[in-house]
């Protein structure tokens, strides 16, 4: 397998804030690779560095074999990028936005026109090509941006939170597009997301990133297997007592957090009655109990001790600082 992206001890600081902290990973050609983490974890900063928009403080990276610092134009030609925030000209039509992009990437006229027609058809905007983008819905704009990112036939496509703020139906639709692009056109895709489900469904491999560091990197299946079986969640007024009561050999991991106890174990269905019996014996009241197969949310919780949503609440203060610094 050929390496599409190679990241070597990449670090980016904004004054005192370390947005990306010494990360290293490799993405192979043809992969869909996900950077999963809460807002403010450093995902967008990582993409900004890989797309040459931001200089790293230290470390290095190559994209399609080209160094991001020494061959900016080479990298830029070989990547397509869909930013987190919209980057279309709303006063122009869909076609004109595509045409502008094609000209910037110096695609000759006849090839440009042919590709624009093809791509607009691919994202089902062919019949809206002469409409002003201002009249487009969020999902249509996103599709147009993806089509635009593909116009110069990039080897790698960067998607920064591709389905942020879209309704579930449009989100499903976009996931299908992304999977198709990868499968049928062999495009390597690196995407950032803070949606667990998105990462789980789309990505071949996922790097979980928190506070600028990669805390886990594997296939979604392996990450979930690493939890140690199924997950039982018990809500109770006295979680510490539960942890104390359930010191059993079949419990592979037990953690309390926010009035909840999360237990990882094999064959949860067989053990759930034992759990209830044990807790009843000790007189511990159970508010609710649930069993589910491990999700990436559980993986995130097991690595960080927090759910992704709690991390986001913490991360918001960082984000504000980050934005201030980006503007300097």
């Amino acid at each position: 397998m050929t390496v599409a992206i190679h990241v070597n001890h990449l670090t980016r600081k904004f004054n005192d804030l370390v947005a990306v902290n010494d990360i290293s990973f490799e993405i192979e050609q043809g992969e869909i690779f996900g950077l999963l983490g809460p807002n403010g974890a450093g995902k967008t900063t990582t993409l900004a560095m890989l797309s040459t928009m931001l200089k790293p403080t230290s470390g290095s990276a190559t994209v399609n074999g080209m160094d991001i610092e020494h061959n900016e134009d080479g990298v830029r030609k070989s990547i397509g990028i869909v930013f987190q925030d919209q980057s279309l000209d709303e006063e122009l039509t869909a076609w004109e936005n595509m045409d502008f992009h094609g000209r910037l990437y110096r695609i000759p006229g006849d090839i440009r026109n042919q590709r624009i027609t093809e791509l607009l058809a691919l994202v089902e905007l062919g019949d809206r090509k002469d409409d002003i983008v201002k009249t487009f819905s969020g999902g249509m704009r996103r599709r147009l941006e993806i089509a635009r990112g593909l116009l110069h036939r990039p080897a790698v496509l960067f998607l920064d939170e591709p389905t942020l703020g879209l309704d579930p139906q449009t989100r499903n639709h976009l996931w299908q597009y992304i999977a198709t692009l990868n499968k049928e056109h062999g495009i390597t895709i690196i995407l950032t997301t803070h949606y667990m489900e998105e990462a789980d469904r789309l990505c071949n491999r996922i790097a979980i990133i928190d506070h600028g560091k990669i805390i886990a990197l594997d296939t979604p299946a392996n990450l979930k297997d690493g939890i140690g079986g199924d997950v039982v969640t018990i809500k109770s007024s006295d979680p510490s007592a539960i942890v104390a009561a359930l010191r059993e050999p079949w419990v592979s991991r037990i953690e309390q957090h926010n009035g909840q106890v999360t237990i990882s174990l094999q064959n949860a269905e067989q053990h759930v009655s034992t759990i209830v019996t044990l807790l009843n014996r000790d007189g511990i009241a159970i508010e609710s109990i649930s069993i589910h197969k491990p999700t990436l949310e559980d993986v995130f919780l097991s690595f960080t001790g927090k759910t992704i949503r709690e991390e986001e609440a913490d991360g918001k203060a960082n984000m504000r600082m980050y934005h201030k610094m980006m503007r300097r």
């Binding site: 928009m53 134009d73 080479g74 830029r76 925030d85 980057s87 279309l88 910037l104 990437y105």
Partner: peptide, 13 residues
């Protein structure tokens, strides 16, 4: 503010 500048700045020009 509308983000369009990024599209131009990330192009190989």
């Amino acid at each position: 503010q509308f983000g369009f500048l990024k599209e131009t700045l990330v192009a190989p020009v």
